[in-house]
């Protein structure tokens, strides 16, 4: 029985392991050179490269990296003032939050759906344009690892450079190649003709790139185009109808919930009748939630403001003509 994949390796941590030598074991401890996600709160995280002499300063005080080294991921670490943060191993989801500082927090819904709907599995060759912040690219790389490859293209040289730096930082360089290219104008490079398992487009005029996509895809391969406006979708679908089948357009959203523990007043408790709505916020909190759980009600409430729209996702499958 082959259990090499369970070997513990001490090379520096990549965002996810993609060859058996780099197998991540979570019991592993933080080392010099590791990328860690410093977690303050759900909406306050930061990616930090650990170095022997490094320090992190935030509102909780000063944290010495040297205190972190040797601790397991998932540890709580303290500052000189006794404040604390958690040190987490990076994941594609945490990375998205770090990249965008919460503004893109719900983007996980689109990313997850795209990866599954494009039928991306380990070993696939995937084309993407544009690269943008590289948030989707990271998830594409996770899905094609350990032996596939993502070729991603952006029009902006600068944007491509920073994305390339990021993949270096997260250790994904061997899974992702970033190119600078105007895909709308020039199409994908000929070297990928008939070789792509899946293609993802996030372009202002995706219909211009679709003829090239149909040349790059293997038969029965799937493409996806992400567009914020319905006119882009209408025009793309029109173009898709000649070479593609199974054309489907979706919208994916995510609503999140807050959880509160409290009791609603009974009619009689509220004799005064003058209770203001403000007092509703300071609900009585038990000191030990678990023991009193039966007498208190835990209620979930939708978070009020949410992303009402990100974009339309149009999927299509290359017709089998051979």
């Amino acid at each position: 029985m082959q259990i090499t994949s369970l070997r513990i390796d001490l090379k520096y941590l990549t965002m996810f392991p993609f060859d058996s030598a780099k197998k991540l074991s979570f019991s592993r401890c933080i080392s010099d050179g590791d990328l860690v996600i410093v977690y303050e709160k759900h909406d306050n995280m930061k990616a930090v490269k650990v170095s022997e002499s490094g320090i992190l300063q935030n509102r909780f005080g000063v944290f010495k990296h040297s205190d972190w080294i040797g601790k397991p991921f998932g540890s709580k670490v303290f500052s000189n003032k006794g404040g604390f943060v958690y040190l987490l191993a990076p994941t594609a989801e945490l990375w998205t939050l770090v990249l965008s500082h919460r503004t893109q927090i719900l983007y996980v819904a689109d990313i997850s759906f795209v990866v599954m709907y494009l039928e991306i599995v380990p070993g696939c060759l995937v084309l993407e344009s544009g690269t943008g912040s590289g948030s989707l690219t990271t998830s594409l790389a996770r899905a094609i690892a350990p032996n596939g490859h993502v070729y991603t293209f952006d029009f902006h040289e600068q944007r491509a450079d920073s994305a390339r730096d990021d993949f270096e930082r997260t250790g994904l360089s061997s899974l992702v190649t970033v190119g600078v290219r105007d895909i709308q104008g020039e199409g994908f490079p000929d070297e990928f003709l008939g070789r792509a398992d899946s293609v993802f487009l996030d372009l202002p005029q995706p219909w211009l790139a679709i003829p090239s996509v149909s040349k790059m895809l293997k038969q029965d391969g799937v493409m996806c185009s992400f567009s914020p406006c319905i006119e882009q979708v209408q025009r793309s679908c029109e173009t898709l109808r000649s070479d593609f089948t199974d054309i489907k357009t979706f919208e994916v959203l995510l609503h999140t919930y807050e959880v509160r523990e409290g009791n609603l007043w009974s009619w009689q408790d509220n004799e005064g009748g003058s209770m203001s709505l403000k007092s509703c916020k300071k609900r009585q909190r038990s000191t030990n939630g678990l023991e009193n759980a039966s007498s208190l009600t835990i209620m979930a409430k939708r978070n009020g403001e949410s992303r009402g729209h990100t974009g339309y996702l149009t999927f299509a499958r290359l017709k089998c003509t051979v």
Binding site: V252, H255, L290, A293
Partner: peptide
């Protein structure tokens, strides 16, 4: 979620409700 918070077993806790709608184009 409430119990995991109280017991300090996990962080980054979130309840999500996915929403999906297909379009005729």
């Amino acid at each position: 979620m409430h119990n995991l918070q109280v017991e300090k077993m996990a962080i980054g806790l979130q309840i999500s409700e996915p929403w999906l709608r297909e379009y005729q184009v």
